[in-house]
Amino acid sequence: MNPKMLFKLVIDLTMTILMLIEMAYYITGNTVHEFLGVSVLVLFIVHNFLNRRWFSTILKGKYNLRRILQIVLNLLFLAAMAVMMICGILMSSELFSFIPVNDDMIFRQIHVQTAYWGFIIMALHVGFSWGMIINSVRRMTGITGTSRIRTIGLRVLAMLIVFYGVYASFEREIGTKLTIYNPFGTWVNDDSAIKFIIDHFSIMGIYICGTHYALKFVQKQDKGELKNTDIGSKMRIN
C-alpha cells in the first residue's frame, strides 16, 4: 500500500477512535476529555491538510448524485467539528480556563449537540469510503479472491450490528440528543466502558452500512441507465 495512503488511514482511524472515546465524558472525566479533545483537533487539522486538494476540486468536474452528497456531507462534517471545537475551547475549565466566559451553558449545549451530529455525520462519512477501506484491508492482508461463505458471514454480522445499533440508539436516546430540546439526554447509569464502545460502534454501524449499500444501489442504477443509453445509441446507429 502507498505509505501516504496508509498514513491517512491511520490518522482517520485514530481520530475516529478518539472521537468515540470523547463521547464517553461521564466515564473518562473532564481532564481526559479536554486532552483528547485537543488531540482530535490536531488530527482533524492534519486530516484536512492531507486532503487539502479536495477543497480545490469542489467547483471542478462533473457532478453526479454521489459527488453532490459527498460534498454536502464533508462540508457539514467540517462545520459540525469546527463549531464543536470552538465551543469546547470556550467552555474549557482546565486547558483553556484563561479564556473568560461568563455563562458557558449555551456553549455546553451547542458543544454536546454538535458532537452527536458530528458523530452521525462521521459514520456517514466512513460509509462513503467503506469500499475503499475494504479494498485497502484486502491488500494489506493479501486477500485477493472472493468467498461466498465469507461474504455471507460478513453480511450476517452487519445485520446483527445494525439491529443492535437500532436498539442502542433508543436506549441511549440518540434522537433526543440530536434535538435542541434536550441534547444532554439520559445517561445509562449501569454503563461500562465496554458496553459504551459496543453500543456506539453499533450505532455507527447503522449509518456506515446504510450509506455503503445505498451507494451500491445508486451505482447499479447509474450503470443500468448508462447501459440502456449505449444500447439505444447502437440501435439508432444500426
Rank of each mutant, 00 (worst) to 15 (best):
Lys4Val: 03
Leu6Asn: 12
Lys8Tyr: 04
Lys8Gly: 08
Ile11Asp: 08
Met23Val: 03
Met23Asp: 04
Thr28Gly: 06
Thr28Val: 10
Val32Gly: 06
Val32Lys: 09
Glu34Thr: 00
Leu36Ser: 05
Gly37Cys: 05
Val38Asn: 10
Ile45Tyr: 11
Lys62Thr: 03
Lys62Ile: 01
Tyr63Ile: 11
Gln70Trp: 13
Leu75Ala: 05
Leu78Pro: 06
Ala79Ser: 13
Ala82Met: 13
Ala82Thr: 13
Ile86Gly: 03
Ile86Pro: 03
Leu90Gly: 02
Met91Tyr: 00
Ser92Leu: 08
Phe96Cys: 03
Ser97Leu: 11
Ser97Cys: 08
Phe98Pro: 01
Val101Trp: 11
Ile110Ser: 05
Gln113Lys: 10
Ala115Cys: 04
Tyr116Trp: 10
Trp117Glu: 01
Ile120Lys: 04
Leu124Asp: 00
Gly131Ile: 13
Asn135Met: 15
Arg138Ile: 00
Arg139Thr: 07
Met140Ser: 14
Ile143Trp: 15
Thr144Gln: 15
Arg148Leu: 11
Arg150Val: 10
Arg150Tyr: 13
Ile152Ser: 09
Met159Arg: 08
Met159Trp: 06
Leu160Met: 15
Tyr164Ser: 00
Val166Pro: 01
Phe170Met: 06
Glu171Tyr: 12
Ile174Gly: 00
Gly175Val: 01
Thr176Asp: 08
Lys177Ala: 00
Gly185Pro: 07
Thr186Ser: 09
Asp191Val: 15
Ile194Trp: 15
Lys195Pro: 03
Phe196Met: 04
Ile203Phe: 02
Ile203Gly: 03
Ile208Val: 07
Thr211Tyr: 04
Lys216Met: 08
Lys216Gly: 01
Val218Gln: 14
Lys223Arg: 14
Gly224His: 11
Thr229Asp: 12
Asp230Cys: 10
Asp230Thr: 14
Gly232Val: 04
Lys234Leu: 15
